[in-house]
Write a protein that binds this DNA or RNA. Structure first.
Lengths: 242, 242
DNA sequence: ATGCTGCGCTGATCCACATCAGTCGTCGCT
DNA sequence: AGCGACGACTGATGTGGATCAGCGCAGCAT
């Protein structure tokens, strides 16, 4: 029996993977490594590095501007790739920081590309995963571009919850969340001060409580409505491609 | 000799494609179609539609919010895929509108996936193209999240110029640009009024002139510096993967 | 015990950008 | 010739969120 990693779980939601495909996938996993919170594992501008699959903990990818501001582009949770894009584009256009202590398994891109040749369905699955990640970034863009601070916060925390629920790390009551208010500020294009105020508003409105490393959805339905959250693109039941 | 479409040109920048690969790629192109400016070809929420490759003209993909605001996520120029993500995710999370009259060629996703099986390098190339598109969206996110209106505008127009230059439709002097100020507003998360003011500022600063369907870089170097534009990730010479 | 650092939290002030309410010029339509 | 419709453009006024300047608390090192 082949082990049920977060990645297998994620890809399995899209492509019904056969046993040979699963074993090719398993053979990609090389060294297991750990990184401590806060110390970057990839630096913007770095020209080569490995790609990883996140096994436990959270990370974030971000870009730094010259004036010291930063924009967090996405958070990675277990089952997500780290640095795949950097490797494909052969230069990292962003940095990656572990939010908590993390465990990863290294993958060699050459192996990944070989695997595509052996099992093309795997290529499709990875392309699908990349598309889903892009959809996430797009939603994030809409957050930042067109929603006010409170909607933005609500929408963002809901989306994170939905992603975590997919890998079994959360549900409609809430989830454990190692982010600081500074992380949220850098992700949402707000100041940390304003993040604090907005969290207070949402808490006082009885919709969501962010406290002590835990996000609690106090009124999930109201929140979904307030944030105009539409989970359809991550909602399907069972593999799309058989 | 196999024809040199914008797509071949784009993928060729990454993967050195062999003749058999080129012919597989050519065989994907099915019906040629045209669409008129302004009438959507894909609606948000639509559950199935074809994917296309843009042959001429510009399009944009956008998301609509319930309150009528819209966020343009990306513009597509010749050589770009239209709706590939929608097809892979089996539901469109966004709409696509032709900015000008456009010509496209339809591709069947089943054919594309078959092509991956025959020529895995093609899968790699498409995954690369998807990564590059994602990098674009990421840069756009940084624009909207962390740059002020003028930097945002400058950066955005520079990036568009760099993309167009890759397919031979622009250079450091400028490019033909069918966008209205409303398009720019919806893309950059600004009001049309403010777009107008910002364009005036940039023009009066002698950096860029947007007028009569043409973007002119009046002082490219100053502009690059002002916008903190870093084209490294779209700058490489020759195929990365041989 | 004492300071130091990281994180959450708050009030006062300021400014970038939105919104409102227009003008003007150029199409294409009848 | 007249009339919408659309896009570029402008001034006056309003506001969401940044910035500044600060407090409180817990954990940790000295």
């Amino acid at each position: 029996m082949i082990e049920n990693t977060p990645l297998v779980r994620k890809l399995g939601a899209f492509v019904a993977l056969s046993d040979p495909e699963l074993s090719v996938l398993a053979s990609l996993h090389k060294r297991r490594r750990t990184f401590v919170a806060g110390r970057d594992l990839v630096h913007q501008g770095q020209s080569y590095q490995a790609a990883y699959i996140l096994a436990s903990g959270w990370a974030c990818s971000y870009k730094l501007l010259e004036d010291g501001q930063r924009q967090i582009v996405d958070f990675q949770i277990p089952g997500d790739f780290l640095g795949l894009r950097s490797v494909l584009l052969h230069v990292s256009d962003h940095s990656i920081e572990p939010v908590s202590d993390i465990e990863v398994t290294e993958i060699h891109v050459a192996d990944l590309l070989d695997a595509f040749a052996q099992t093309p369905r795997l290529a499709t699955a990875v392309l699908w995963a990349a598309s889903r990640d892009e959809a996430m970034v797009v939603e994030h863009l809409v957050d930042v571009g067109r929603r006010d601070a409170a909607e933005r916060m609500a929408h963002f925390l809901l989306e994170l919850g939905a992603r975590l629920a997919l890998v079994g790390l959360g549900n409609k009551d809430g989830y454990a969340c190692p982010l600081t208010q500074y992380h949220l500020a850098d992700a949402l294009g707000l100041s940390a001060v304003h993040v604090n105020r907005v969290l207070r508003q949402l808490r006082e409105a009885g919709m969501i409580t962010f406290r002590d490393g835990f996000v609690a959805f106090d009124d999930y339905d109201q929140l979904v409505k307030f944030a105009q959250f539409d989970p359809s693109y991550m909602d399907h039941k069972g593999p799309i491609l058989r």
